[in-house]
Nucleic acid binder design. Structure first.
Length: 420
RNA sequence: GUGGGUGUAGCUCAGCUGGUUAGAGCACCAGAUUGUGGCUCUGGGGGCCGUGGGUUCGAGUCCCAUCAUCCACCCCA
């Protein structure tokens, strides 16, 4: 039986890898403009980091983690998201002791044991950003502007920005009580999942998509109405800043992010056209997280983008012109006795920054011409007996079909002349 | 974890109610006179018909299981 890539994983082959390079490049450039520097963290961490940092009641921790024992019986977990590792690194290296705020971005694979479907894999890729050390609502706005700028630079237009505030621990507690008061009379009508959600984290009952649960909790209070004065002001400033920047958003009372550590601003980007898994990005503020992970009481905010979902959205766009991967020059070697000399020619051209390739499978001249054509070569250099004896090359312009003979020392200038 | 669809050549697929050596298009390779590409023509290589069992004189085709994949649910990126 043939060995195949494990379930929920896949290979990125050329030319698809070019699309990945393109997205990563756009993110890098945008990050630089916004003043974010790259951080690279391990792909696995101690399991307890995610249990504490992501939240023990979340689906990610309860059923989706790739956890294993190493040879010393440590419990390790393939990272399911990027924030926890950033927080760990911030604390471990006392980065907060330096210049604040700390503005990081990252890109890389994440792992969740889920059933694969459109836009969902077991090894998937996220790029994200994290900022530590400021509770300014203008920073919330900047983080969202960063995210939106990436989408815009990629040429994506038809996205929805959903926005909400989940408040601070204070207003969240009063809201939680209001919600419990509202739900408890109809508790029996909820689905099994919601009954356990009600026990563990009542806020997540609001996320349920079961119709009967929707009806049962109709008229539930919104957290927005329970926000304390500070949280309200914070949220208003975030919204006003976005409005002034011309960023459209939808206030979404039902947006209660699945991760436990979020406070205040929460947001998600949806592109409905890519399928059921339409969230291409999401994030929010997590002011309690650093402390919860054993660090000082430092506020944080961040987001993550799903690369596979971005790719899906990009695929439905009109074709972007591919980066120039076509060959400049093909060197046709007409007799194997010139193989060695041919390698010297390749070397010279490449050192002159000319993109050049040749055949290594012993093709006939005609086949080499065909091959060169398929590689998209703009020029073919012919190197046969005539040329070698006379110390020259035949240079063929593939689009005009014109050929000229050039002396060895004139080869590079002649090629550059045709290419430019 | 649950439900449904699909597994035949490198890719996209055909193969009617079970019946001889399993096909097409594309791709790949080679030719169409001497050292010249795109178009056309001719030829060629490639398939344990996902895997394992079962029914049958006979299975790509029917039944069961299993694996993979796709779509959806849950949840999220």
């Amino acid at each position: 039986m043939q060995v195949k890539a494990p379930r929920g994983t896949y290979d990125v082959l050329p030319p698809d890898s070019q699309k990945w390079q393109y997205i990563e490049q756009v993110i890098q450039e945008t990050a630089r403009l916004f003043g974010y520097s790259e951080i690279r963290t391990p792909i696995f961490e101690h399991t307890e980091l995610f249990e504490r940092g992501v939240g023990e009641t979340t689906d990610i921790v309860t059923k989706e983690m790739y956890t294993f024992q190493d040879k010393s019986n440590r419990s390790l977990t393939l990272r399911p998201e990027g924030t926890a590792s950033c927080v760990r690194a911030l604390i471990e290296h006392s980065v907060y002791g330096g210049l604040m705020p700390v503005k990081w971005y990252y890109s890389g694979p994440m792992f969740r044991y889920d059933r694969p479907q459109t836009g969902r894999f077991r090894q998937f890729h996220q790029s994200g950003a994290e900022v530590f050390g400021s509770n300014s609502p203008y920073l919330d706005a900047e983080v969202i502007m960063f995210l939106v700028q990436i989408l815009s630079n990629l040429g994506l237009r038809d996205y929805e920005l959903h926005l909400n505030s989940v408040g601070c621990p204070l207003c969240r507690e009063s809201y939680r009580q209001k919600l419990i008061d509202h739900i408890s009379p109809v508790k029996e009508k909820l689905c099994i999942d919601c009954q356990s959600r009600y026990e563990k984290n009542p806020l997540r009952v609001l996320d349920c998509k079961v119709e009967s649960c929707h009806q049962a909790i109709a008229g539930f209070p919104y957290i927005y109405d329970s926000l304390c004065d500070d949280c309200q002001e914070h949220y208003i400033l975030v919204k006003a800043t976005l409005e002034d920047s011309g960023i459209n958003y939808l206030h979404d009372n039902n947006l209660v992010r699945g991760l436990d550590y979020y406070t205040n601003t929460a947001f998600e980007i949806h592109i409905p056209s890519i399928g059921a898994q339409s969230a291409v990005g999401g994030g929010g503020r997590y002011n309690g997280l650093v402390k919860a992970c054993g660090g000082p009481d430092i506020p944080g905010i961040g987001f993550a983008l799903g690369m596979e979902r971005l790719l899906l959205a990009l695929d439905s766009l009109p074709d972007r012109e591919e980066p120039n991967s076509k060959l400049d020059v093909f060197l046709a070697v007409l007799d194997e006795k010139y193989d060695n000399q041919a390698m010297q020619v390749l070397d010279r051209l490449r050192k002159a920054k000319i993109m050049v390739d040749r055949d290594y499978t012993g093709r006939s001249m005609k086949a080499q011409m065909k091959y060169a054509d398929k590689l998209g070569a703009r020029i073919v250099i012919l190197m046969g007996e005539d040329e070698v004896n006379r110390g020259c090359f035949t240079v063929r312009n593939m689009s005009s079909r014109e050929q000229l003979e050039v002396q060895t020392e004139q080869l590079i200038p002649a090629i550059i002349d045709i290419l430019t």
